[in-house]
């Protein structure tokens, strides 16, 4: 291990501070006893208790969770299929445009994705609500799943599948008992990524949502416009905790699989 010089240490501290001090302040003030958001009035968990009574926020959180689960599941299935097509079908006609179209949402400004989806839903007369947000989030997140799963598939040793078939396992069962378990960490990481992306999306959700389907970010945003309330700090802290856990799980899943592969190949 290389020792860090004082200069490196200071740079590291400043960089981390830039990233995390705002979040830290938010977390600290969520335990503030005072009603004033900028004045420290001692430690208290009263805003967390207050949350328990805030029906609107709870409903928004449930809506968000439902949408995140549904869209992440859909995105995982579609993204995995897209990744399989890109890695397994060889150089089929239209492979390049297909890949480009799958990856486009990665770089597309969310405002444009949101607006175009809104126009589409209006044009086809689709009633806007939780379903439209779910569809919108699926389009946004499936490309992330495709990227993650594709990187797993690229390192997949095809002779594993041949070995399974050679040992008497028909193709479909081979896919279920060998291919899927081996690429499962990639799929899990993709799912968790899609889940957290959907959970904290504000822009696309606000374009595509309708009455009765308010997601948590939309709710928080609308409350903050009327002035920051301490309850919001508490909600956000819980939110950060959930997202952090999901992201850590995702990276652990990939790390574990990579370590297993590194030795066995």
């Amino acid at each position: 291990m290389r020792r860090l010089s004082p200069f490196n240490l200071v740079s590291l501290a400043l960089g981390l501070a830039f990233l995390y001090v705002p979040i830290l302040i938010l977390v600290v003030y969520s335990f503030n006893a005072s009603r004033l958001v900028t004045v420290w009035g001692g430690f208290s968990t009263r805003w967390y208790v207050a949350l328990m009574q805030d029906r609107a926020l709870q409903e928004a959180a449930l809506t968000s969770l439902g949408i995140a689960l549904a869209s992440a599941t859909l995105a995982t299935v579609l993204g995995t299929l897209a990744a399989l097509a890109l890695t397994r079908l060889g150089r089929f006609r239209g492979r390049l445009p297909f890949a480009a179209m799958i990856y486009a949402p990665l770089v597309m400004p969310e405002v444009i994705t949101g607006l175009s989806l809104l126009l589409l839903f209006v044009a086809v007369g689709f009633e806007r609500g939780a379903a439209t947000v779910t569809i919108a989030h699926t389009t946004l997140t499936m490309c992330f799943v495709a990227v993650v799963v594709q990187s797993r598939l690229a390192g997949f040793d095809r002779s594993l599948e041949e070995a399974a078939q050679d040992l008497g396992c028909p193709p479909l069962r081979t896919f279920l008992t060998v291919t899927l378990p081996v690429i499962a960490p990639g799929i899990a990481a993709g799912f968790l990524l899609a889940f957290s992306l959907s959970l904290d999306d504000l822009v696309i959700a606000s374009f595509t949502t309708g009455p009765g389907a308010t997601t948590l970010p939309i709710r928080i945003y609308s409350e903050v416009r009327l002035g920051v309330k301490p309850e919001i700090n508490a909600v956000c802290t819980i939110f950060i905790a959930v997202t952090a856990v999901v992201v850590i799980l995702a990276s652990l899943a990939t790390r574990r699989a990579e370590r297993r592969e590194a030795v066995s190949s």
């Binding site: 040793d157 002779s159 041949e162 070995a163 078939q165 050679d166 592969e261």
Partner: peptide
């Protein structure tokens, strides 16, 4: 006869052991 029904078995160069 497809591979999964042939009474022959193969040992692969990469061994192709199932990591899971």
């Amino acid at each position: 006869v497809p591979p999964w029904q042939r009474p022959v078995n193969m040992m692969f160069q990469s061994y192709a052991l199932f990591p899971h």
